[in-house]
């Protein structure tokens, strides 16, 4: 399975992952072999089966709509790089 160089670059951009120029060919080959595996799975005839969203034969548990989490801002912001007046500070983002 061939993956174009451009596709790797685009995926890296979308995933915010820096990929070294020299490793692109190798990454393309490795991802290609993953896709080959997917192709093998795709080849299996599943037309007689219902789709499953999960490997487990279970369904989603639901919780009651009750407040269980109290304010822990101080603890949760302790590891944040930068905060001010209770806000997390990040490099400016403007859309």
């Amino acid at each position: 399975m061939n993956i174009e160089r451009q596709e790797i670059e685009k995926l890296a951009t979308l995933a915010r992952i820096a990929i070294d120029e020299s490793t692109i060919t190798e990454v393309a080959e490795r991802l290609g072999s993953v896709l080959e595996l997917v192709d093998q799975l795709q080849a299996a005839d599943t037309s007689s089966l219902d789709g499953v969203s999960s490997g487990m034969q279970a369904t989603q548990r639901l919780r009651e709509d009750e407040v269980t989490e109290i304010n822990q801002r101080e603890a949760l912001q302790a590891t944040a790089p930068d905060t001010e007046e209770g806000l997390f500070l990040v490099p400016k983002v403007i859309e």
């Binding site: 806000l87 500070l89 983002v93």
Partner: peptide
């Protein structure tokens, strides 16, 4: 919510989750 206006230093946005 991203807050772009406030007393933040230049080039920073505040995030309220």
């Amino acid at each position: 919510k991203s807050l772009h206006e406030g007393d933040f230093r230049h080039g920073v946005s505040g995030i309220d989750l």
